[in-house]
Amino acid sequence: MNAVRLQQAVREYAQSIGIDKIGFTTAAPFRELKNRLKRQQELGYQSGFEEKDLDKRTQPALLLDQAESIIAIAVAYPSKMSNSPKGKKGERRGIFCRASWGIDYHVVLREKLALLEEFILKQVPDAKVRSMVDTGELVDRAVAERAGIGWSAKNCAIITPEFGSYVYLGEMITNIPFAPDTPMEDECGDCTLCLDACPTGALVQGGQLNAQRCIAFLTQSKKPIPEEFRAKIGNRLYGCDTCQTICPKNKGKHNLHQQAFQPDPELAKPLLQPVLRLSNREFKERFGEVSGSWRGKNPIQRNAILALAHFKDETAVSELIAMLGTDPRPVIRGTIAWALGEIGTKEGYQALEAALLKEEDFEVRAELQKAIETHKERI
């Protein structure tokens, strides 16, 4: 099979296994990207989850011997939920971002890439391939942009004409010299809605993100969330969709066709108070199949406490007080202290004063003292 026919066959097979978009590009170094990544490091704008070696992130030839091409794929995920449950007093709910609806996308895309690898190796048995999704060294968005999947938008997402920015990305490096596709023109124009709507100002300018201020990153961090961001987390348990939902290019893009990503409403918008009671085993049993579980239960429970404070949910006060006295995790106790100060009940204030008398952790004591002062000021 000649190269042109093989490339067309790969496109057709990709479509048959549920890959929504596929594009091809060279394995040439991403030279401009390396400069941008270096600048991000210097500014302290990275999340810390990234590959540290910038050469590996920008030189595909370091990741696969004799690399010639990269195949980029995109799989769309839904932006709407059927039968979305509504929270009410005493039954407040949190929300997982759309990228955590349904089965973990890492699993789904790796399966599709494995099938694509198998198909290519049947046609070219001595071909070399290496696939990755999200956690690989390459920058998925840079590969997708160069392969013509979509354009790199001001909100730092890849936007496709067909599915908006609601797409998961993956890629495969290969030694087969496929013909490269043409990158798309940027269609953001003068629009700055995503920059204006970002709750924490994490979008520094079009195409530049300070991950340390991004709610999507903050909800995944295992550290105490800085006080300036706590009220802005709202009821988000994992991730943030604001810069996507505000985008005009996403209007009407519902993407309901991928069954693997159809959300279970009770997982995507769970009741908050039951989340606080989950053991590690119970958390894995309930949320283990969604991508938002990858950091474990601790960040999700911390975020649930912030969400209860967001709702000023007085029905949660007794449970929070019980946790304040017994939970072994300083991050959780410190977050509860802030939450009780925000909710502002007399019972909560008394619990804060009682906890201060026996708390030994320096940072938790500081949180308790600030919460007590907050309560006094409000009175």
Rank of each mutant, 00 (worst) to 15 (best):
S152H: 14
S152N: 10
A153E: 09
A153T: 01
K154G: 14
N155I: 05
N155K: 04
C156R: 04
A157P: 01
I158R: 07
I158S: 08
T160E: 11
T160H: 12
P161E: 10
P161H: 05
P161N: 06
E162C: 04
E162H: 05
G164T: 04
S165A: 08
S165I: 00
V167W: 04
V167G: 09
Y168P: 02
Y168G: 11
Y168A: 05
L169S: 03
L169T: 02
G170Y: 03
G170P: 12
E171C: 00
M172K: 10
M172L: 05
I173R: 11
I173F: 08
T174R: 11
N175G: 01
N175S: 06
N175R: 02
N175L: 01
I176L: 15
P177G: 06
P177C: 11
P177T: 01
P177N: 06
A179N: 09
A179V: 04
P180M: 00
P180L: 00
P180F: 00
P180T: 00
D181H: 00
P183M: 07
P183G: 10
P183W: 06
E185R: 13
E185L: 08
E185I: 11
D186A: 02
D186Y: 09
G189K: 02
D190A: 07
C191P: 02
C191K: 10
C191V: 01
L193T: 14
L193G: 13
L193R: 15
L193N: 14
L193Q: 15
C194F: 07
D196Q: 13
D196Y: 09
D196L: 14
D196W: 09
A197M: 06
A197S: 13
C198L: 12
P199L: 13
P199D: 10
T200V: 08
T200W: 12
G201R: 03
G201F: 14
L203G: 09
V204S: 09
V204F: 08
V204R: 14
V204Y: 15
Q205W: 08
Q205R: 13
Q205T: 08
G206P: 12
G206C: 04
G207H: 04
N210F: 02
N210E: 11
A211Y: 02
Q212E: 14
Q212W: 07
R213D: 15
R213M: 12
C214H: 12
C214I: 06
I215H: 05
I215T: 11
I215A: 07
I215R: 08
A216G: 01
A216R: 01
A216S: 12
F217I: 00
L218Y: 10
T219D: 12
S221V: 01
S221F: 13
K222L: 03
K222F: 03
K222I: 00
K222Y: 06
P224T: 08
I225P: 03
P226V: 00
E227Q: 09
E228P: 06
F229P: 09
F229N: 07
R230M: 02
R230E: 13
A231P: 15
A231N: 14
K232A: 08
K232M: 13
I233C: 04
I233P: 04
G234D: 13
N235L: 13
N235Q: 13
N235T: 09
L237M: 15
G239Q: 13
G239E: 14
C240Q: 03
D241H: 03
D241L: 00
T242Q: 11
C243D: 07
Q244I: 03
Q244T: 03
